[in-house]
């Protein structure tokens, strides 16, 4: 089983690989310029966070938009990559009204597979200035929200493409490992 991690320069990208290793999944670091052809044979893909805004241009995302559009494997985007997925699927990314740095409480709207078994609400850690919002034309469903952020988790309509605004890979998100396991289970099928 192999799930590579796309590094976008964020503080916790390397921790995603650590978390995957700890649940017995092979991982390697890849860069945004990686093509779909390079990714042949993988079971799933996780895209990490980073320090810029999707509204400042798509140049730094390399081939990721194409990968999100055409992937035949499950994809999980975290933080900045969650915002990328939200934007590609017709949502809008705006400056958050109240930025979240550190602890937040995530409320589950719809479990789907990715949030199965994590309860109605859970503590998570986040670190972001921008957030995804719905436009009425979006091609995703909102799986979770918080007081400061309207889309904490999303799932693309009709495909196993997920986004989470909070960080499942940090030790301060106790349910993070469970959510990663859920994603790995989606990749197993």
């Amino acid at each position: 089983m192999e799930i590579p991690v796309v590094f976008l320069g964020g503080q916790y990208n390397h921790l995603i690989m650590r978390a995957l290793r700890e649940i017995g999944v092979s991982s390697r670091r890849i860069m945004p310029k990686t093509t779909l052809e390079d990714l042949k044979g993988i079971d799933g893909l996780i895209m990490g966070g980073g320090a810029y805004s999707v509204n400042d241009g798509m140049g730094r995302f390399g081939r990721l938009p194409e990968i999100v559009e055409r992937a035949d494997f499950p994809v999980l985007g975290i933080c900045l990559s969650h915002q990328l997925i939200g934007k590609l699927l017709g949502g809008e990314v705006v400056k958050g009204r109240k930025p979240e740095y550190g602890k937040t409480v995530v409320r589950v709207i719809e479990e789907d597979e990715i949030l199965a078994g994590v309860g109605k609400e859970f503590v998570a850690w986040a670190s972001h200035n921008d957030e995804v919002i719905r436009t009425g034309r979006e091609r995703f469903s909102v799986l979770a929200e918080s007081d400061c952020c309207r889309v904490e988790a999303l799932k693309a309509a009709g495909s196993p493409i997920y986004g989470v605004q909070f960080h499942v890979e940090v030790a301060e998100t106790p349910k993070g490992t469970e959510i990663l396991r859920n994603f790995v289970n989606v990749c197993r099928r």
Binding site: M17, R21, E22, G24, S26, S27, R28, R29
Partner: peptide, 14 residues
Amino acid sequence: VCTISGPNGNQAFD
């Protein structure tokens, strides 16, 4: 240098 490699690469830290 930060790829996970070697015999340790794909399991918990030993």
